[in-house]
């Protein structure tokens, strides 16, 4: 029996999720993702023609992730790689897709929340995607693997984010460690097994959030 965490959750329980689509009218797609007290907003502009000609690719779209906070270039590169592999970039040649991510409230598992906000905003913008990347943050404690840690828990131990496909939970897209410690392959595989079970719950929540947005739009249009 695993001991309860500071907020009363068990080891493999996620914090309450919330997703609001289309919250910004100026952007082509936007989303506000909440996981407990971690709130992240993402805005998608595009596909648009780049201001500088050298920024474009002749055969595909270029994805640009911007997180306007200090020391986030590593996160930007990580998210850019994942989103580029998941989006159908060849459908939008010579265009640029700008994704701006704002961290409104930071209480742990920030990179997973940023990924989910960005993907939700991309779906709101109507960008075609091969698959939805689902990020699950795992905390490697002494006795157990804790999912979706808070900031207090992350400060105590090393965390690891596992990114999986929604269509095939066995397919791992990426892995990112919060600190410089190199995790063993056994640890990563152990985390991915736990994350695969939880990723299905996040995918199901995504479906509900998007479907409710679509129904709301249809009611607005046809009422």
């Amino acid at each position: 029996m695993t001991e309860a965490r500071p907020d009363g959750r068990s080891a493999n329980t996620l914090r309450p999720l919330s997703c609001e689509l289309g919250c910004l009218h100026a952007a082509d797609g936007s989303a506000l993702w909440k996981a407990g007290n971690t709130h992240v907003m993402a805005a998608v502009h595009g596909p648009i023609a780049p201001r500088i000609a050298t920024e474009e690719h002749a055969d595909k779209c270029r994805i640009q992730v911007v997180i306007p906070t200090s020391s986030s270039s590593e996160w930007e590169a990580f998210l850019t790689r994942i989103l580029t592999s998941c989006c159908c970039t060849q459908l939008y040649p010579r265009c640029i897709l700008s994704i701006t991510i704002h961290v409104l409230s930071h209480d742990g598992s920030i990179l997973a929340a940023a990924l989910h906000a960005a993907v939700s905003a991309l779906m709101d913008a109507g960008i075609e995607m091969k698959t939805l990347p689902v990020g699950v943050t795992c905390l490697l404690s002494n006795t157990d693997i804790l999912l979706d840690p808070t900031q207090v828990e992350e400060d105590e131990s090393a965390s690891l984010i596992i990114v999986l496909e929604n269509s095939d939970a066995d397919q791992m897209l990426a892995c990112y460690s919060s600190n410089s410690l190199n995790q063993s392959v056994q640890t990563i595989l152990k985390c991915s097994v736990v994350a695969a079970r939880v990723s299905q719950a996040i995918s199901a929540f995504w479906r509900i959030a998007i479907e409710s947005k679509v129904k709301q739009q249809c009611e607005t249009i046809f009422s």
Partner: peptide, 12 residues
């Protein structure tokens, strides 16, 4: 079929 017109439809 997506629910509404998207920016991604405005690509040349």
């Amino acid at each position: 079929t997506p629910p509404h017109d998207f920016a991604s439809r405005r690509v040349i």
